[in-house]
Design a protein around this nucleic acid. Structure first.
Length: 449
RNA sequence: GUGAGCGUAGCUCAGCCGGUAGAGCUCUGGAUUGUGGAUCCAGCGGCCGCGGGUUCAAGCCCCGUCGCUCACCCCA
């Protein structure tokens, strides 16, 4: 007697049913296609990096899954390699390593799983897809790149048809310029910005309290900061208001950059209804230095940011003595997908990618059925043959459950006249078609209307 | 890492004041010959997370442990 091992999921490591995975793949496909439309080249780096690489940016080491071989001395192995926890650090290493052979501005996309050891909860996983694009410049990178990113985001989420969305854009120099102007020490900026970033989540009052009591920011500074981050109005109104404020050079540079980016976004086809200047967007990550982005679904703000990123001054300072500024975004597809599913914004449909199931009614005609399937495939249809010797009833039940739109049925009567029946599984309607014109008929049935 | 809650059938859950387990859904089969999704009938399915304790008796109470979920931290 073999002992049954109870199969159970591992928390934080999602897996989907076919009907769900088909949807996720479709989204991945949309993302990939759009990335390529903007000239980003595919790139894949190993799932594993050296620890010295992963920890070079001072990331939270507790998040990292370290590798140990099953056989061998764990102590030795464990020190050296780990799974990557994002795609930016591997990109930095990659760009530095292959610097001479790459063309700059270098633009690549990377769609891979990443791993983080953090405790899972709603919308937070330990294994998930990141879909990253970045544009990396050599020494310099035009602000045009910053304007292009929202255009990519816009096209992706429009194509996905997941409801109206808003890209929130800001420039970090505005906030850090303000803090610098008020003589707040640089090492405290991150805490402050992280708190500001929570305005939408916990509300203005709590942020105000946290800024003054926990962080100890002077009252006037808190008020100024919160006024700054709650600016509202049209794009032009907000920009003019920002331009009227005098918080020093860095602040002014930030406002100037923001205007330039936003004005170019228009030419890149981002409608004004799909983006907004939002000075509260700070992004917790400390490596962002200029433009920052966040994107939300208008009807589902609770889902949180579905895509975020920004500009950084120097990508690979730890790996190469070149200044490589860049700008990019990351779509956390697993989180996005799981929440769209939970919210019912995307709904699982068929459990098959096939268009048609070829049933086998009479096994003495096996060769004919197989030839039909081959013919359908030749026409570009996805065709599946029901291989098991079961009653037609069972075959149709199978087709229903799996969500086939069409089923081909043929027996002695049909074959005698070189015909087959094509049954539409939604309407139940059946049509007799000539075997010689099968492909065209099937395509007709599949096309909408 | 910190805090809270929850572990009963494949899934969602019920189970009273402690008396050795139940529903719905799913699944499988059937309602005659080459036609599914609806309905009806039947059936499969449980070391009540694991270990210990209290008790005549524990799914229920107590302790521990593991797991899960949520929140915080942080982030996609």
């Amino acid at each position: 007697m073999t002992e049954i091992i109870k199969p159970r999921p591992i928390s934080g490591f999602p897996e989907w049913l076919p009907s769900e995975k088909i949807l996720e793949e479709k989204m991945l496909g949309t993302i990939r296609k759009t990335f390529e439309r903007f000239g980003f080249s595919p790139l894949e780096t190993p799932a594993v990096e050296r620890n010295e690489v992963l920890t070079s940016k001072g990331g939270n080491e507790k998040e990292i899954y370290t590798l140990a071989r099953l056989a061998g001395t764990p102590e030795d192995d464990a020190k050296e390699y780990s799974l990557h926890f994002d795609l930016t650090v591997p990109l930095a290493r990659y760009v530095a390593q292959h610097f001479q052979r790459l063309s700059f501005p270098f633009r690549r996309y990377q769609i891979q799983k990443v791993w983080r050891g953090e405790r899972p909860q709603d919308g937070r996983f330990r294994e998930f897809y990141q879909c990253d694009i970045d544009i990396i410049g050599e020494e310099n990178l035009s602000l045009l790149a910053d304007a292009e990113i929202p255009s990519v985001i816009h096209q992706i989420f429009s194509a996905m048809e997941i409801g109206d969305f808003i890209i929130k854009i800001n420039n970090r120099k505005i906030l850090s310029g303000f803090l610098q102007f008020h003589n707040i020490p640089a090492e405290r900026h991150n805490d402050i910005l992280r708190t500001i970033d929570k305005v939408e989540k916990i509300g203005r009052e709590k942020v105000e309290r946290e800024l003054s009591s926990v962080i100890g920011l002077p009252g006037e500074c808190v008020t100024g900061l919160l006024d700054l981050t709650s600016l509202q109005g049209t794009r032009e109104e907000v920009l003019m208001r920002l331009e009227s404020l005098d918080y020093g050079d860095l602040f002014r540079t930030g406002v100037f950059e923001l205007r330039e980016v936003v004005e170019n976004m228009e030419g890149l086809g981002v409608p004004s209804g799909n983006y907004r200047i939002d000075s509260s967007v700070a992004r917790g990550l400390d490596y962002y230095t200029g433009t920052v982005y966040e994107t939300n679904l208008k009807a589902h703000p609770d889902i949180g940011s579905i895509c975020s990123g920004g500009r950084f001054d120097n990508l690979a300072g730890n790996f190469i003595k070149k200044r490589l500024p860049g700008v990019g975004i990351s779509i956390g597809l697993t989180r996005l997908f799981s929440r769209l599913l939970a919210a019912g914004i995307v709904k699982p449909g068929a459990s098959t990618v096939s268009n048609i199931l070829v049933t086998i009614l009479d096994r003495s005609y096996l060769k004919e059925y197989l030839a039909i399937a081959t013919q359908l495939r030749g026409m570009g249809l996805n065709a599946e043959v029901y291989t098991e010797p079961k009653a037609l009833k069972k075959q149709l039940q199978f087709a229903s459950k799996k969500g086939f739109k069409m089923v081909l049925i043929a027996g002695e009567n049909e074959f005698r006249e070189r015909k087959a029946k094509i049954k539409n599984m939604e309407s139940g309607e059946e049509r007799e078609v000539s075997l010689d014109r099968l492909g065209e008929e099937a395509s007709l049935l599949l096309s909408p209307g």
